[in-house]
Design a protein around this nucleic acid. Structure first.
Lengths: 137, 137
DNA sequence: ATCTAAAAGCAACAATGTTGCATTTATGTA
DNA sequence: TACATAAATGCAACATTGTTGCTTTTAGAT
């Protein structure tokens, strides 16, 4: 799994450091969405600023994207690395379970066509679905 | 405009206080979406904790809803007061202009039907559209 | 006009976001 | 392999936001 992390980092011309490998690995291993806090708790060996900057770097490099959420805490998810579609950068569907709080990327789903009022142009569409996930049903 | 604010507060069995009237009025007058900071800046006569609690109260009463966003700062919008549909509580479309940063509620738009994988149940759908608004085109 | 529960204001603290700077480290090159 | 250097880390520090407790003030019922 470290192999994959390293490959991703190299692909994006990012230096291979412990923190980055761990963070990318964490996203690769779970299909989920994580906040800075999640990573701080998991990897206490790194300073929170380092994790903060690591997330920002990965964000800027296009490895991660930020998930819109209501809680007022930034959360991050991995871009679907397998997809080569241009649209992988544009459209996202996230599912948030109201019981366990877990957020998942539903990357295989197509974002439905959306109509907007005249004069508006659409660049990106984010869909956040609330409900109950299979494990909590 | 204060009339409308007061009517809304009464309808929700909330006491009529200066701060609440001002905050609701602010949301009524703009079609937009505001953060706590926006309101603090506008209404410096109120303590930020008062505004914080006012927003929470309005949220709980169902006057406002929180808008999912990527920035990591809670933002609020007014529920469409005219709609009586059950779905007004469930589905939202927001448009964020990448140039001016303004967020608008597109309450008149229907949220498209979304399909989720087997085992997931949908309670609410939030759609966040990024792009360019008419004034910035 | 009075009473009381609710709201506001204030202080305080936790969590998060963010920057500067000194130290350490990854990586290209000799 | 060793070296040089730009980049990343760790630490301190500070700003902003989220949150709670407590005292004072006030809206609204009587």
């Amino acid at each position: 799994m470290s192999e994959a992390s390293i490959a991703i980092l190299k692909f994006h011309n990012l230096r291979i450091t412990d923190c980055r490998v761990h963070v990318v690995k964490h996203f690769l291993e779970g299909n989920g969405v994580y906040s800075q806090r999640d990573l701080e708790n998991k990897y206490r060996q790194y300073d929170r600023v380092t994790i903060y900057r690591t997330l920002n770097n990965l964000l800027q490099a296009g490895v991660l994207h930020r998930i819109p959420n209501e809680s007022g805490m930034a959360t991050y998810g991995l871009f679907d690395q397998s997809s080569t579609s241009k649209h992988r950068f544009d459209n996202h569907i996230h599912f948030k379970c109201n019981r366990c709080g877990q957020i998942e990327c539903l990357d295989d789903r197509e974002v439905p066509q959306v109509s907007v009022p005249k004069g508006y142009s659409v660049e990106r569409v984010n869909l956040i679905i609330d409900g109950t996930c299979p494990s909590c049903t």
